[in-house]
Computed example of a mutant assay.
Amino acid sequence: MFTGIIESTGEVINIIKEGSNQHFEIRSHLASELKVDQSVCHNGVCLTVTEVSGDTYRVTAIDETLKRSNLGTLVVGSKLNLERCMPAHGRFDGHIVQGHVDLTASCTQISEQEGSWLFDFTYETSNPEYLTVEKGSVTINGVSLTCFNSTENSFRVAIIPYTYEHTNFHQLKVGDQVNLEFDIIGKYISKIISRQNFH
């Protein structure tokens, strides 16, 4: 389990295609603290560390992951938001994040607001579980954020300077695709309600 509080960023230094899979070699100062078989969240996607060497490590994304997330658009030089699993004795500073991306969204507008930034996103889905709640939590590229101006297929988030500089939000442009993971509690509630309505 993750919390959506980004520890660091990593840079893609090599991409190796093998069948429908892609192996990503990533440089990060976290690499020296990682172990093989450890789970790390990459732009909100939970991937298993398969190799560690110095300041680099390797993870593999299968075809389903590449199709459901923005990992398939990565190139050498891309920056990733990184978070290791939450330790049992750690503080819960964000919200419950599984590292299972639901779908991608498109950035439609970026507005600077005297030192902070507003980002607008839209997405396409007919799944009632994939909705945001006004002032509720959503994970964008692994970052736990509070959304507002929520509609059926769009929402807005505000990014403070620290988050802007210490994640890959400062690289986002209008039209870019981001990974979304909706609040797991909201998804469970939606499923329970839909089943009650069905009966």
Rank of each mutant, 00 (worst) to 15 (best):
140 I>E: 10
147 C>N: 12
60 T>Y: 04
129 E>R: 15
55 D>R: 00
99 G>H: 01
168 N>A: 10
58 R>C: 15
60 T>H: 08
199 H>F: 10
198 F>N: 14
127 N>W: 05
34 L>H: 07
64 E>Y: 00
37 D>V: 01
125 T>H: 04
72 G>C: 04
67 K>F: 05
129 E>I: 03
56 T>A: 15
131 L>H: 11
167 T>K: 01
164 Y>H: 13
133 V>K: 09
157 V>F: 03
131 L>N: 12
37 D>P: 00
5 I>N: 09
169 F>C: 04
104 T>C: 13
88 A>G: 05
182 F>V: 02
97 V>Q: 06
173 K>I: 03
168 N>D: 12
5 I>P: 03
139 T>K: 00
31 A>V: 02
143 V>S: 13
91 R>W: 08
172 L>T: 14
169 F>N: 05
54 G>M: 03
92 F>Y: 14
81 N>V: 02
110 I>S: 10
37 D>L: 04
45 V>T: 15
79 K>I: 15
198 F>M: 12
14 N>K: 11
99 G>F: 01
59 V>E: 11
28 S>T: 08
78 S>K: 01
16 I>F: 06
30 L>I: 07
168 N>C: 09
127 N>C: 13
88 A>H: 07
172 L>D: 13
146 T>H: 05
166 H>S: 14
44 G>Q: 08
71 L>V: 03
29 H>M: 03
159 I>P: 00
41 C>W: 00
84 R>N: 12
95 H>Y: 11
28 S>P: 01
40 V>P: 01
165 E>Y: 08
158 A>F: 02
9 T>C: 13
125 T>A: 11
179 N>P: 05
51 E>D: 13
180 L>M: 06
5 I>H: 04
113 Q>H: 11
146 T>E: 12
6 I>S: 13
153 N>C: 05
198 F>A: 15
151 T>C: 04
93 D>S: 04
56 T>H: 10
63 D>T: 02
88 A>T: 07
3 T>E: 09
116 S>Q: 13
170 H>F: 10
148 F>V: 07
37 D>N: 09
34 L>G: 07
20 S>A: 14
77 G>W: 06
125 T>N: 08
59 V>I: 12
83 E>G: 06
121 F>D: 12
6 I>Y: 07
20 S>I: 03
188 Y>E: 10
133 V>N: 10
31 A>F: 00
58 R>K: 13
193 I>P: 02
30 L>P: 01
197 N>C: 03
51 E>P: 00
164 Y>M: 13
78 S>R: 00
135 K>Q: 15
115 G>W: 10
182 F>R: 00
175 G>F: 03
167 T>W: 03
63 D>V: 00
160 I>M: 11
125 T>D: 12
128 P>Y: 11
173 K>N: 14
105 A>N: 06
79 K>G: 05
29 H>Y: 08
71 L>W: 02
153 N>F: 02
65 T>L: 03
17 K>C: 10
49 V>T: 14
47 L>C: 10
4 G>V: 05
124 E>W: 01
130 Y>L: 15
166 H>Y: 12
124 E>I: 13
51 E>G: 01
128 P>E: 14
33 E>T: 06
179 N>L: 08
197 N>Q: 12
30 L>E: 09
47 L>P: 10
32 S>L: 12
91 R>M: 09
44 G>A: 09
10 G>Q: 07
88 A>C: 06
161 P>Y: 12
76 V>W: 04
150 S>G: 09
3 T>I: 06
